[in-house]
Design a protein around this nucleic acid. Structure first.
Lengths: 145, 145
DNA sequence: TTATTAAATTGTAATGTTTATAAATAGTGT
DNA sequence: ACACTATTTATAAACATTACAATTTAATAA
């Protein structure tokens, strides 16, 4: 499952003329396997064991490359640092206001909204982002005891 | 029109026990009158004339206060600094990928999505955010000549 | 009006994330 | 294996935002 995704991702890089380095391989692998939404620093720390000499700049550089190629989505919430998400299928995120947990939420998409927006504003609409905020079950039970 | 909004905002502050200082008055006024979505630094620079001694920290502190009271929404896009938006009616933003222009876009809301998300994830859903990205008319014409 | 008190402002330093830079290194196609 | 460039590394710099302590000020009541 993940193997396919990784292969496809590497293929996509090759096609764009982006070189495949061990660091890039490892970052991609981490993004695919981690079911969370890590920050650049999370990734840096997680790969410290395998790559003791890797620079933080490398992580940032490659996340930018992956974003430009369209492999990765950058999520900017209110908190200090960006989070990065390997793009699989179209899905949204539900975020807990209390503990910050991020849960994936699949939804058909909001093409209708895009069309309306395009019509009203005259923009050539390309894409959109949406996040839903609330309290996760864990934090809900904690609050009401 | 704006006078009413400002009065109501000041009233809301009073009710919450937040003191009304000249700086707060000016920042609120600026947010309401500016039809743009200024950064903290925009606000700071714009009020430099009236308040030569005002600290950047004051701007940040008060934007946080306004957000906590619910008068202002903080918008975190990809770029480096947050933007702040005085909350009037429920609307979304359409953002130009090319020049960064932000246009308001009124839409009935996405209650249905919130309900579904709540049902699927078990979250107590409170609110959501959505932004639409594309190319504005100006940039579109520039590209195609 | 004045005194009182807690809250807000100021100035500055500190923090933390992200980017820029230049030298060293390593992928890729031949 | 070679040559050509992209990439990595290490470090410094830039930038937005926050923390802090001292000073000032808004709100309240006498």
């Amino acid at each position: 499952m993940e193997q396919t995704q990784l292969k496809e991702a590497l293929e996509a890089l090759k096609e764009t003329g982006v070189r495949i380095t061990p660091q890039r391989h490892a970052i991609l692998e981490y993004l695919i396997n981690s079911m969370s939404h890590p920050t650049a620093d999370d990734i840096y720390k997680s790969l410290e064991g395998k790559f003791p000499n890797m620079s933080v700049a490398t992580v940032y550089n490659n996340l930018r490359v992956f974003r430009e190629v369209g492999l990765v989505k950058e999520l900017t919430y209110g908190d200090s640092s960006s989070r990065f998400d390997f793009i699989t299928t179209h899905h949204y995120h539900v975020i807990c206001d209390s503990c910050g947990k991020i849960v994936d939420f699949h939804y058909p998409g909001l093409d209708e909204v895009e069309h309306l927006a395009s019509h009203v504003t005259g923009f050539k609409v390309g894409n959109h982002r949406m996040e839903i905020y609330g309290t996760c079950p864990d934090c809900s039970t904690k609050e009401t005891h």
